[in-house]
């Protein structure tokens, strides 16, 4: 059953990711990316990271992708989805590069070895150990993150402001 869920979600994620990069319309790309994020969220759940899965759906598939869709609809990128004359040349470069990268990544995978801890979900399950660690060991990074978000909000406001 678990394998079935994994293969189903993995297939949906890969097909959706491919749709993102081949789709001409940016709106369809954004929708495919939402599908990809949601199926990856199910995989996060399967890995015992329930809180991260919820954050993935709320922040990524919710907030960030809605922001993307707003921008896509605001500036209407349908006019030049593909620069077709350069596309062929770029694809010729991209395919070998991607093949090398993919092979390198896949080559690194067997180095992991067999599953170390079959006593799953001992330390990873639930929100409590996460919160305990976040607000004790990682308190300073957490606070720095809040400053980062403040700076990002100010930066976005300044950048998006109409200057003329």
């Amino acid at each position: 059953m678990e394998e079935l869920v994994f293969y189903l979600c993995a297939a949906v994620a890969i097909v959706a990711a491919l749709t993102v990069i081949v789709q001409r319309s940016a709106v369809y790309s954004a929708l495919a990316l939402i599908a990809c994020f949601c199926s990856v969220a199910i995989l996060f759940f399967q890995l015992g990271a329930e809180f991260i899965a919820a954050i993935q759906v709320i922040v990524y598939a919710g907030a960030i992708m809605v922001l993307f869709l707003f921008v896509v609809m605001l500036i209407d990128p349908e006019s030049d989805a593909f620069a077709s004359n350069r596309l062929k040349k770029l694809t010729i470069t991209a395919v070998p590069l991607a093949a090398i990268l993919g092979l390198l990544l896949l080559w690194a995978v067997p180095a992991v070895g067999p599953n170390g801890s079959d006593s799953s979900h001992a330390a990873t399950g639930g929100i409590e150990p996460l919160a305990r660690s976040l607000f004790s060991d990682y308190l300073l990074p957490f606070e720095v993150t809040s400053i980062l978000i403040l700076v990002a909000v100010l930066g976005a406001m300044v950048l998006a402001k109409r200057t003329d």
Binding site: F51, I52, T124, T145, I149, A156, M157
Partner: peptide
């Protein structure tokens, strides 16, 4: 999950936060 450590989840949490900030600035 492999190493039974919670720290990687914390790291993912921070990556997501930075990604959200990056998306806001990048889209602007």
């Amino acid at each position: 999950r492999h190493f039974n450590q919670i720290d990687a989840q914390i790291f993912v949490f921070f990556v997501m936060t930075v990604a959200a900030a990056e998306a806001a600035v990048g889209l602007a």
